[in-house]
Simulated scan of single mutants.
Amino acid sequence: MAQVRSKNTTPEIAVRKAAHALGLRFRLHRKGLPGTPDLTFASRRVAVFVHGCFWHRHDCDRATSPASNVEYWAAKFDRNVRRDARNAADLRKAGWRCVRIWECETKDAKKLAVILRRKVVSMPKVP
């Protein structure tokens, strides 16, 4: 698992490119926020997490479970999901909107642009 990157992943870079193409400007991996969001749009107070379907248990084909050491993996996945929910709740308490983009949603650039327009661009700017 040491080879699994947490920053600058292929799906994250796809989201960055799509956001930049839409004219959005953002900060990366803001440490002062719960969960260290992958992208933050401060003017809209939107925090974006780009989640891998396998690690964060999305309801798609990529979220398979290993056949060996089942108890370990079940506990690990459960901890990941609980941590994600806790981080999202903490962000909401701090006045941020939390957006989750799944790895499988980053495969098609046009669909990703639609998702970003709907989840980020449509959010009003905070005065």
Rank of each mutant, 00 (worst) to 15 (best):
H56N: 04
V81K: 08
R97D: 08
G52T: 09
A88Q: 12
E71Y: 00
I101C: 14
D90V: 01
W55F: 11
I101T: 13
S65R: 05
A67F: 00
R82L: 13
D84M: 00
D90F: 01
R97K: 12
A75T: 00
S68D: 00
A88N: 07
C60Q: 05
F49A: 12
C60V: 06
A63N: 03
W73V: 07
W73A: 09
S65I: 01
D59H: 15
R97P: 01
H56D: 09
K93N: 13
R86I: 06
R82E: 15
C53T: 11
Y72M: 01
R92V: 09
I101P: 14
I101Y: 14
A109L: 14
S68H: 00
W102Y: 15
V81W: 03
F77Y: 07
W55Q: 10
A74H: 00
Y72G: 01
H58L: 10
R57N: 09
W96Q: 05
A67Y: 00
A75D: 00
C98L: 14
F49W: 15
K93T: 15
W96P: 03
W102D: 11
F54R: 06
H51N: 14
D78L: 04
A67L: 06
G52M: 12
N69P: 02
I101F: 13
A89Y: 07
V50I: 04
T106Q: 14
R83T: 02
C104N: 07
A67D: 02
V48L: 05
R82K: 15
V99P: 10
G95L: 09
V70K: 01
A63D: 03
N69M: 03
W102E: 13
V99E: 04
K76L: 01
C98K: 12
D61L: 08
P66M: 03
A88S: 11
T64M: 10
A85F: 02
F49S: 10
R79W: 05
A74F: 02
W96C: 06
A109W: 10
D61H: 07
F54G: 08
A94T: 04
C104H: 15
S65N: 02
R82V: 14
D78T: 02
R97A: 06
R100M: 12
N80I: 08
H56W: 02
T64C: 06
R86S: 08
R57P: 12
V50H: 02
D84L: 01
R92K: 11
V99L: 07
R82M: 12
C60G: 05
L91T: 05
K93Y: 10
A85L: 07
D108L: 11
G95Y: 04
R79C: 02
G52R: 04
G95V: 09
L91S: 09
W96A: 05
A63Y: 05
A85E: 10
H51S: 06
P66C: 04
